[in-house]
Computed example of a mutant assay.
Amino acid sequence: MEVHAILLALIQGFTEFLPISSSAHLILPSVLLGWEDQGIAFDVAVHLGSLLAVVYYFRQEVASLTVAWLRSIREREQSTESKLAWCLVLATLPACIVGVLFGSLIADFLRSGWVIAVTTIVFGLLLWWADKIAQLYKSEYQTGWRGALLLGCAQALALIPGTSRSGITLTAGLMLGMTRDAAARFSFLMSIPIILLAGSHQATGLVSAGIAIPWVAIGLGVVVSFISALACIHLFLALLNRIGVMPFVLYRLGLGGVLFWVMAGQI
């Protein structure tokens, strides 16, 4: 149990913020090694670790954006930080709406190896195309409400397993003319409210169901996912402008091929 928890938390932490689909990676251990689902409590734990990592890494931005947002409400004072904060709020709404309306349908009918294999490849190619045509001139502060809404819709699309929340929001940011670094930073910042809301929803379900909590696995999940996600964010931002998105596109194509091979072997 502990070994499974550590490995799955590592996978979650490293893949949550890379444009390579965490769901595609999490399905492989269960298919190849026959591991059982760790359960909703463990899901909450690893997402909490990822949330803590992104909040810690962007703690200065989070603090300044929060102060500016509250000031814009109390004093009607607008600034570049408050406008970005409102853009992040707007970008959160589409995924919340789609999640509430269609979350159960997506979980019941789209969470399969075949779907994940297809979306891993298709959205990998879309990321390549977006990077190819990208103009790369906008910062995250130039998003605007239309851009924020488009990025929010892209994040909602990531509810389809295999799409990759990081990948599709990076794709949308590049299509809007944002620099790679700006698109990645906006993607990281917009992950904070959506992970918080999703984790709170899962935790509420966990409490109401009265499920027994495996505290050792929970602790390992939080710590390991925090450390691996923090390392992932730092390395991704440091390397993105240097290496571009092509290594991630090629990786997605290879991963999708492996998933097709694995699923075909089960027929």
Score class of each variant (00 low, 15 high):
M1W: 09
E2P: 03
V3E: 09
I20E: 07
S21K: 01
H25R: 12
H25G: 12
I27N: 05
S30W: 00
L32Q: 04
R59L: 07
E75I: 05
T80E: 15
K83E: 02
L84T: 08
T92V: 04
A95H: 04
I97R: 11
G99W: 04
G99N: 06
G99Q: 03
V100I: 15
L110M: 12
T119L: 13
V122E: 05
L126E: 03
K132T: 13
K132A: 14
I133D: 07
I133W: 10
Q135S: 13
S139I: 02
Q155D: 03
S166M: 08
G167K: 04
I168T: 03
T171N: 10
A172Y: 01
L174S: 00
A183V: 03
A184T: 01
F188R: 08
F188N: 08
I194Y: 01
S200T: 15
A203N: 02
V207W: 15
S208V: 12
S208M: 13
A209T: 04
I213S: 07
P214E: 06
W215S: 11
V216P: 07
S225Q: 05
S228V: 00
A229G: 02
A229W: 00
A231F: 12
C232R: 01
L237K: 08
L240D: 03
I243L: 15
I243Y: 14
M246E: 07
M246C: 00
V249F: 06
Y251H: 12
Y251T: 11
L253R: 04
G254A: 12
G257E: 12
V258N: 03
W261V: 11
G265W: 07
Q266M: 14
